[in-house]
């Protein structure tokens, strides 16, 4: 696909919008349909598309596999870490009410924000790493 100019340009144009859309889905998740799972997959889709058109090597240069693996682990840590923080603040695990001092509703917002951040990170990391793992094998290209 190296010489297919229409695809290349279209991808170049689409990728930023896909990324933005992913972030929209992510941050609108508190109020409407959306959330980390969907956002993570959309985010990953942007990179998959990029890799399909510009080649796996270029994508790997943009997004090194180590970063992807780190994302998988990091997301879990963010998620569980949120729970641990609420434990440290004296409430039950994942009880968001205590995350903002004295303001349960605000606390819920914060809690969901962090948890969803954990989810998007892990889902994104997992999706891309599955793609890398299967697409990057010798003999398949």
């Amino acid at each position: 696909m190296t010489y297919n100019i229409i695809l290349r340009i279209a991808t170049k144009v689409l990728c930023p919008f896909i990324l933005i859309f992913a972030l929209y889905v992510q941050f609108h998740g508190d109020y409407g349909p959306g959330g980390g799972f969907q956002a993570g997959v959309i985010l990953a889709a942007a990179f998959v598309l990029y890799a399909l058109v510009y080649g796996l090597e270029n994508c790997r240069r943009v997004l090194p596999p180590q970063v992807v693996y780190a994302c998988m682990a990091l997301g879990v840590l963010i998620y569980a870490g949120t729970g641990v923080v609420s434990v440290l603040l004296g409430a039950d695990f994942l009880d968001y009410n205590v995350l903002a001092h004295g303001d349960p509703i605000h606390g819920q917002h914060r809690g969901i924000f962090w948890v969803e951040l954990g989810v998007i990170t892990t889902v994104f990391g997992t999706m891309v790493s599955i793609f890398y793992a299967i697409a990057g094998r010798k003999g398949l290209n």
Partner: peptide, 20 residues
């Protein structure tokens, strides 16, 4: 669904390695 995706992905990864 997430679980199912993970299962399928792992399964496919195994298939690839089995093929090798």
């Amino acid at each position: 669904i997430v679980v199912s995706i993970a299962t399928t992905a792992l399964g496919l990864a195994l298939v690839v390695r089995i093929n090798e």
